[in-house]
Each structure stands twice: as structure tokens, then as C-alpha cells.
Write a protein that binds this DNA or RNA. Structure first.
Lengths: 147, 147
DNA sequence: TGTTAAATGGAAATTATTATCACTTGATAT
DNA sequence: ATATCAAGTGATAATAATTTCCATTTAACA
């Protein structure tokens, strides 16, 4: 929780530094993204905030996500089915392991990824700026039939 | 070229095995996907075929791609900007290196990926079925300012 | 050839996202 | 504190990509 507050503050600071206002709507969005519990979708965020902010517009959620993406403070996770979910807690690209049954997302630690990045740069002669690595499968709990 | 014919034949055979008809439109789509030069988009495919098949409908291209995806004969490459491109030549998941400037796509050889897959399965206790690995950057030719 | 289920073309429907615009408000200077 | 004003918001319209619908056509097989 302290972690999330800290993360919110970082995002707020970054926004101020870039001359953006902090509105209540924006702050509510930031708080959810700073936690990013379960990697929320735009709809998830919208619904959560609507509970105590009934006039919150979907457009505002979209606008703020675009802004935060452009500042590098949220990571967009685009899924093969076209849906998008967001991570404002760990906005740097990192691998995901996704359960295709219950949609749970786990962040594995893969030390070998940096090495691989170098390998790719060397082999292809590209300047690598960014990457995306997702594994899809079934989590142990779904495999046990608990899902 | 012989390669591409062979690949087309494989796809056609798979379709017949599953009780699908081979129409001229379908075959034209298959031929382009079997080659997958430059990883075509739906629009690319549609335009190429329109040249000598003016009534070809966009819906038909979409329908056939859905079908071929479901049979595991084309791989959909979904990009962060929401656009999709397709690979019917190498339909198994494989890493891509994408130039964000000229949109060129290179398929690097990464032997360590299998190893990583095992590592992830072990660490997360998931049964890994599928994956997606893309690197984004600038190719050497664009870096040299030729783009 | 005749039959029939599958495929097609064209248009309408759907979905996710972005743009528009009149109105409101947070941040700054006074 | 209050006035000012650029930035932000809400509601809705517009856009874009994809899917569905339906009447017509056609590939496959008897």
C-alpha cells in the first residue's frame, strides 16, 4: 500500500513537471493504475471510479491513459484477442505469463532476457529500443480444475 | 518459390482434410499468405488480389484468415499500434525484430528461447502453450539515414 | 448434370478508440 | 482570497477495424 502511494506520487510529480493539472478524476485513475491490481482494462478503471464518481467519462480514462503512456508511466499490455490492459505499477517492459483460462497475469523473473536482447542486437544489427515477451498457458490452479 | 508452392499445398491439404472447399478467392489468399512477403496486412492481401480479381471482398479476406488461424496455418502478428499483419509461411510462434521506422520485420534465430520457456514453466508452475516475443528498434539501414 | 452445404459480396452491425465542443476547473499571479 | 485562462472534463459524434447478415453463387460429390 505504501508502495502504491509512493508510485502515485511519482506519477503525480511527473505530471506536474510536464505542466499538467491534477484533477480529482485524474488522481482517481492514477491511484488505480499505480496499484494495477490484476492489470485493469479501461473498462475496469472506469467502473471502479464510477462507484464513487458517477459522472466519470470513459473518454477521460482513455485520455489519461494516452497521456501517461506518452510519459512512460503506464505500460499497455495488448493481448492477441485485441483487448488492452494496463500496468502503471511497473511501467517498464517486462515479461508476462498469462493464464488463458482465468486471465491471471504473473510477472516472472527472467534474468536471461537482457542477454537475449544483446544477442538480437548483434545478430540483426538493429538498435533495440523496446520489447514484448508474453507466455500464454494454464496456471496451476486452473490445471487442478479449481478455476 | 518452390517452397511457397509446397506451403500452399500443405495449407490446401489441411483445409480439405477439414472439409473446406477450395475457391479461387481462397486459393489466392492462401498463395499470398504462404509467401507472406513482408508479413502482409489484411489490406495488403485484399489489394494484391483485387488487381486481377476486382470483386474480391474484404470480408472474404477476414473470413479466410480467421479460418486459417483456427487451423494453426497462419500466425497473427499484433502490433502495439493495434494493426495486425500475418505470417502463413512460418505459422508457429517465433520472435520478431521490428523496425519502428520502416516497419521491416526480421526473424532472428534465438536458441535460448526454448530454454527460457522451460525456465518460466518451472518458476511459475504454468503449463506454457504459446508465446510472443517481439523486439522493437531501428534497423541499420534506417540508422544510416537511408530510410 | 443435380444437389447441397459451404463460401462469397456487399452492406449493415458491432466494438474499441479518438475527436469535437461547450462548459468547468486547477494552478498561478495578483 | 480572487481573477484569469489554459488545460481538463463529460457527453456525444466520428472513425476505424473487424464481424455478422443475408441473398446469391459455387465447389464437391453422388
Amino acid at each position: 500500500m505504501a508502495d502504491h502511494n509512493q508510485r502515485s506520487d511519482t506519477i503525480v510529480r511527473k505530471l506536474r513537471e510536464n505542466g499538467h493539472k491534477i484533477t480529482p478524476q485524474r488522481l482517481a485513475i492514477i491511484k488505480i493504475l499505480a496499484k494495477s491490481e490484476g492489470h485493469p482494462s479501461v473498462e475496469d478503471i472506469h467502473e471502479q471510479i464510477r462507484a464513487d464518481f458517477p459522472t466519470m467519462s470513459l473518454a477521460t480514462v482513455y485520455r489519461n491513459i494516452v497521456l501517461l503512456k506518452s510519459l512512460g508511466e503506464v505500460l499497455e499490455l495488448g493481448f492477441p484477442d485485441g483487448s488492452n490492459r494496463y500496468d502503471g505499477n511497473k511501467p517498464a517492459p517486462h515479461p508476462h505469463v498469462i493464464c488463458i483460462r482465468c486471465k491471471k497475469i504473473v510477472d516472472p523473473v527472467l534474468d536471461s532476457l537482457d542477454e537475449m536482447k544483446k544477442e538480437v542486437a548483434l545478430e540483426t544489427d538493429f538498435k533495440i529500443l523496446n520489447h514484448r515477451l508474453d507466455f500464454f498457458g494454464i496456471c496451476s490452479s486452473c490445471m487442478a480444475g479449481k478455476g
